[in-house]
Each structure stands twice: as C-alpha cells, then as structure tokens.
Design a protein around this nucleic acid. Structure first.
Lengths: 247, 247
DNA sequence: TTAATAGTGTCTATAAGACAATATATA
DNA sequence: TATATATTGTCTTATAGACACTATTAA
C-alpha cells in the first residue's frame, strides 16, 4: 500500500463474492448408489437459460466472510452456518460485467448435506474434471470457480480424514471412506485408506471406557472422532527436510 | 453475482495489491555462505520506523496483474519482468485503513536474483517461520503476506525442481540443491534430492549429442534443463486413487 | 445357517535413508 | 600428487499394494 492521502481520487470497483457451495450427497440419495460431490446452483431470473452460483456485492463495513454469509442467506436461504470461505481467485477482466467495473472474488465453502435441507436452488453433480452438470450452462466465470473449488477439496481429501469437517460427530471408517470416495469421485482401496486414516483418528469411547460402535448390516464398526489436534502431517508423506545437520 | 441493474447504488472499496517479491540470494552474496530466501521491502516516506511491501491501488480498466506490474515498476523500479502473481488472501478488515474503505489483495511473485539488480528497496532475509528480518517492523498486514508467500513457495519447492523458474537456463544438480536449500531454509539430503529431481529433468546436450557439463572445482557436473512438460507428478507421491475397479 | 460388513495379518514391491565406492576435474 | 566435487551402487527400513483370513452382527 502506498502513500496516498486522498483516496477519493480513486474510484474503486464493485466487489462481489461468488461462492461454490460444495457438499457430498449421500449414496442413498444420489441416484447412483454412490456418494457424489455436488455444488449448489440457482436459476437467475434475468436470463432464460443459465445457471449461476450464489453471490453478492460487498457492502461498506462488511468483511468478505460476512458478504459470503449474507449471500448464502439471501440467495440460498442458509442461515446460521459458520463456514470457512476459501478464496480461490479474483476475476478481474475489466470488461467482464457490462454494467460497470466489478471484481469478483471466487470462493469455496464446504457444507454438510444435512445443512442444505431447506436450501433454495439445486444441487448439480460435479464430475471428475470439476464440471458441474446443471441443466443449463454456468454463466460468467462460475465454471472456473467450481472447477478450482473441486480441485482444492479433492486435494485436501486425499491425505486427511474429512478435513472440511462434513461429519459433525463420530463416524466409522466405512462412512468416512464413502465420504472420501464421493469427494474424489473415485473408489479407494479399503485397506490402505484405513491404514492412513486410523492413525489420524481417535476411537470414540464411553465414560466407562467401552468403545462406541455402529452397525450397518454386518459386524459393528468402531466409531472414530477427528483428533482435536489439526495439522498432523500424514505419516506417509516423507519430507526432504533434514532432521539433523548431516549430509 | 446477482441481478443488480444499477451498480451506482454500491460504493466499492479501493482495492490495492500488495506484493511479496521473493528471491533467493546466492550463497556467495548472502553473508552466511548459504543461499537465502529474501523478500523485497522498502522504507516508506510516511512513517519514521517501518517497512512495507511494494503495493499500489488498482485503477479502472486495469487487471490485477497489470496493477502488480505497475507496482513493481513504480515502487521497485522493476521493468519488463513477466511475473506470475499468485493471490494469497484478501485483507478486508473494514477499519484497516484509516483513510477509508480499502481491500488489499496480497500476492506473491518469485523473481530471479539477477533481475533484482537495479531494484529500489532492500532485501530482507526470510527465516524458517516466514518472518522477514527487515530492520524495522513490517507495517499493515504485510508480515502475513510474507509468511504465506514463503509457505507457498516452500511447499512448491519440496517436490519439484525449481517450479517458479528462478533458473533461466540450465543448471547442475548441485546448483539446484543450493537453490532449494535456500528456499526451504534447510539442508537437504543430497542423494534423495538428486534421485527425486533427476527423473523430472532432461540432461542438456549439444547438437552432436555430447553432454553439456559445468565445473565447480571438482569433477564436472551434468547440466540439466527443466522438462518442457510441466505438472509431471513426482513419482514418490503415491496416490490413493484406484487405477482399476477393485476393492 | 448364510450374507454382509468389520477388522487383522502377511507377503511383495517400491522408494527413502544411510553410506560406501568410484570418477574426473583443479591446484 | 592431493583435494574437491560428481556420480553410481548397495544395504536397510518404512510404507503402499494386494490379498487372505478371522470376527460379529442381521436375516
């Protein structure tokens, strides 16, 4: 930031936030029998054929996070979620909005499917390439936002158990794997997946020390909780950094 | 983006770009005998004791990349670099600038040390925690920008050879390791480092097929080029994703 | 009982960590 | 020659991949 005493010499752009609300549709509801990554879209009233992400202009005195929360409230009818918007990129083409100079801050948020119950809009399936299959094409740069949002979420879900916290409470390894397969859009190896994840989880126990179990048609499974300590590096990812002074 | 016909009802914020210009000071010049990560800072004229990153307000009709290029030109005297600004985060606290409503888009760019020859400002060493050791404290949120810029660059330099392209031409594995050790602020294991990197590099040869070598006081070393194909996944990072339908 | 799911154990292949040995330049 | 750096090879260890086997529920 430079030294400019009179800011009024600059006319700032209108700044919008556009949000890819990502969720995982549970297997029984997805139609395919598998959990599926999906994004919340809506049909705007100002075009006949087109789909957009929820978005909103930033008001003075607001933070970006507040504008995101407002957009989710006003556009999607979602209230009271405490989400962590992740900034993806800025769309800054000076001619991108014919109505005037606007910037758009593309964001991603991950929301548990249950919290999208009363939401307005539709859930569009996100395919392996990050393309949303809404009925009509995504307008503006919104396809890019969805693709980058999906890419980021997939990268996060490859090494850590449910890093976005879509499970509110405990979960079994099978439920966790369903979730991860939905996010990644790929099947995962059960044994390797379990080995990687177990070491980052804590088995849930009752106060008397007995394990909390959950059954799904077979042998009951241990229920796990995310470790309270975040940022534990997955053991599998060896680092080049030297622990000592050697060489 | 919603449907708003009259944009003039919104008064947009002033939008600034602030840039962490990262470079690696070669070992002979750093004073420590090791290559060192550094960031370009300047002493602003409006405070007695404080340091800032180069920055500039976005003008109408400009893209963010153009504003970054302008800032590097006007503030640091750098012309003609084609840099790739990486967006790090938005600083959006409504009260962060007493002069009025401003947003700042924190960016990182990586620039080869040779290109900073005629630059205004000083190079501040960036330590292992991402803290810049300028003589005086970094003002505003600029310490956060430097930290996140360094984090991102370090993550990139752990698995791939010189992903930011600080070497313009060919390099030996020893030179590459010096560079990576400077970025990471850590010594690296020579053998493992070489194994990882060689498979992502192409040995430089003359038209007659003889290898290009370079000597540094001992046996001459092969000169390598980055593979023209970017985005080659490092072989070491095994993935969970199934190649087949199994499990 | 059978079917379905959960969990454990084991063998193999691959890559990292550690270190030794050899090669080729300069002083 | 001695010294410095580069390069190759090998042994050990850790983890992924593959698969078999046991365990515990419901129907």
């Amino acid at each position: 930031m430079g030294r400019v005493d009179d800011l009024s010499m600059f006319r700032g752009p209108n700044v919008a936030v556009d949000i890819a609300v990502l969720t995982v549709v549970p297997a029984p509801l997805s139609g395919t029998g598998l959990s599926q990554l999906a994004v919340l879209v809506e049909q705007p009233d100002f075009v006949a054929d087109g789909t957009v992400l929820p978005g909103r202009f930033l008001r003075e005195g607001q933070t970006v996070a507040q504008a995101v929360a407002d957009a989710l409230h006003v556009k999607a009818g979602l209230v009271g979620l405490d989400v962590l918007p992740r900034l993806l990129r800025v769309f800054d083409d000076p001619g991108r909005d014919p109505r005037g100079w606007t910037l758009s801050l593309g964001h991603a948020v991950s929301v548990a499917f249950e919290h999208l119950e009363g939401a307005r809009g539709q859930l569009a399936h996100v395919d392996g390439q990050g393309a949303a299959d809404a009925g009509s094409p995504l307008l503006f740069d919104h396809d890019v936002i969805v693709r980058e949002a999906a890419e980021g979420m997939r990268a996060r879900y490859e090494l850590e158990p449910d890093p976005d916290g879509l499970f509110g409470v405990g979960f079994t390894l099978a439920e966790l794997r369903d979730l991860h397969e939905g996010v990644l859009g790929q099947q995962l190896r059960k044994d390797t997946f379990n080995r990687r994840m177990v070491e980052q989880l804590r088995p849930q126990t009752r106060s008397d020390g007995t394990p909390v179990l959950r059954t799904r048609g077979g042998r009951p499974a241990q229920v796990y909780l995310r470790q309270p300590r975040p940022g534990v590096p997955p053991a599998s990812r060896r680092r080049l950094v030297l622990p000592r002074e050697t060489n």
